[in-house]
């Protein structure tokens, strides 16, 4: 079951800031009441100006539920993004930011839900999937998990080094693609996530219990349609669409 959301705003402290890709930073927060959450959930962030004006956004949690004491939100800088550019340009370690959550009860997975599971993420859509991958690793689960990820270039692939290391356990498999450059290393492919790629992934994992797809709306739409064409039933496909 999904934990009951904690809906009160909490004042969280920024414990660390990491540059993950040229456009995405990871913000690590400590909260007075660490939230019990399920991988895939998000937190709401509230910024308040001195005159009371406020801006809110939702950001997916990237860290594992096993570490509620240190919540990581990965935030992509958006063109004209009032909140994302504030995080990228102004926020420093030690700052206090209001958060509430966890929120969202559909795009979630824990090892108790079983598998195998297939995770497909485009760009920053990898964030909630990474929480699932980290949860899977923290629990030393033997459930087969395949992550299919794509980004413009190799440096845009979120958490690539960590994902490469996690493959050593033999149950987590990474399939990564870059869309706007030739792949520079043998374990990366070039080109978009397309039908032959997904066909190959499904040949290796013929009956995924749940397929999670996250990314921009065109990405999710394309991938979900391909999955339906390849015979995955709609009830097994869960989507989360970023952007806008």
């Amino acid at each position: 079951m999904v934990p009951t959301p904690k809906r009160q705003w909490q004042v969280a402290r920024v414990a660390a800031i990491e540059t993950l890709t040229p456009r995405i930073k990871g913000f690590h927060f400590t909260l007075p009441e660490p939230p019990a959450f399920t991988a895939g959930q998000h937190m709401d962030v509230r910024l308040v100006a001195p005159d009371g004006y406020e801006a809110q956004r939702s950001y997916s949690i990237a860290s594992a539920p096993e570490r509620p004491d240190r919540i990581e939100l990965a935030i992509e800088r958006l063109e004209d993004g009032e909140v994302s550019s504030f995080f990228h340009d102004v926020v420093q370690v030690g700052d206090e930011i209001e958060l509430r959550g966890p929120l969202g009860g559909h795009f979630v997975w824990s090892v108790e839900d079983g598998g195998p599971i297939l995770l497909i993420g485009g760009g920053s859509g990898v964030v909630p999937l990474m929480s699932m991958v980290r949860h899977h690793a923290a629990r030393a689960s033997s459930i087969p998990v395949t992550l299919v990820t794509s980004a413009r270039t190799a440096v845009d692939l979120l958490y690539l080094d960590e994902q490469r290391r996690l493959q050593a356990n033999g149950v987590f498999r990474l399939v990564a693609r870059v869309t706007r450059e030739a792949a520079a290393t043998p374990d990366l492919g070039s080109g978009r996530i397309d039908r032959p790629l997904l066909q190959g992934v499904l040949d290796a994992m013929p009956d995924p219990r749940i397929v999670f797809v996250c990314g921009s709306n065109p990405f999710v739409g394309t991938v979900a349609d391909l999955l339906l064409d390849l015979g995955v039933t709609a009830g097994r496909i869960r989507t989360e669409r970023f952007g806008g």
Partner: peptide, 18 residues
Amino acid sequence: PGQYTTADFPVLSLGPTP
């Protein structure tokens, strides 16, 4: 309260477009 305006029309759905 808590909203911002957009000229886009974002899409949010829980699964594939039926």
